[in-house]
């Protein structure tokens, strides 16, 4: 039950993109088509989940016993960068069109603050291994959710008559802000 609440908390109430404003770059960059938004979301979710697991192991089995917690940033970034490379190779092998669609945003997952944020949060909140794994999946699901909602709205926007000054980046920012406002409605639903 606790884990389910944790999942919902990470995915919706404390959504990484819309509540913490982490990972805004791909949120705006890869949210033009729902299909590519889903793939981007899944790629981030994969990286997040594995990152959560591996960083937990590294932190609790290596950094804490040897009292070198100071190196958590370095080691976490190392994990994330390697994982992103792996995902990149995998996607390039499996689907070249998808690889081209994601473009620069795929290697940019490396520097996506949402992922480092996730690793640091789970250290800060002293999650157990299972908890941080669930936290990772939840955060990834939340990221995917935000991206897909945004992409859905932007697909509709393309067909609608937007006042000239708002076209392009302007309306995207307004939509992102409104979405964040909407997600604030969940605040206080679960306090974790």
């Amino acid at each position: 039950m606790n884990l389910l609440l944790l999942f919902i908390s990470a995915a919706i109430v404390n959504n990484f993109v819309l509540t913490y404003f982490l990972g805004i770059c791909p949120f705006v960059g890869v949210s033009k088509r729902v299909s590519s938004a889903v793939s981007m979301g899944l790629a981030v979710m994969f990286v997040m989940t594995i990152t959560a697991a591996v960083t937990w192991l590294i932190y609790h089995l290596l950094l804490v016993p040897y009292q070198i917690e100071i190196l958590e940033y370095v080691s976490f970034i190392l994990v994330i960068a390697s994982l992103v490379q792996l995902v990149e190779m995998f996607i390039k092998k499996v689907s070249k069109p998808l690889y081209d669609t994601l473009g620069i945003f795929l290697p940019l997952i490396t520097t996506n603050c949402a992922i480092l944020g996730l690793a640091l949060f789970s250290v800060l909140r002293e999650y157990s291994f299972i908890e941080s794994l669930v936290f990772g999946i939840g955060a990834g699901a939340g990221f995917t959710l935000a991206l897909v909602i945004m992409a859905g709205i932007r697909e509709e926007l393309e067909l609608s008559n937007i006042p000239k000054p708002f076209r392009g980046a302007g309306i995207t920012m307004i939509v992102a802000g409104s979405l964040a406002l909407a997600f604030m409605g969940f605040a206080g639903l679960i306090s974790m």
Binding site: I58, Y66, L71, S75, L78, V79, S82, L86
Partner: peptide
């Protein structure tokens, strides 16, 4: 040693 080891491990995996 630990960071070098981690780096080596990941690069081998990659």
């Amino acid at each position: 040693a630990s960071m070098g080891g981690l780096g080596l491990l990941f690069s081998a995996g990659l």
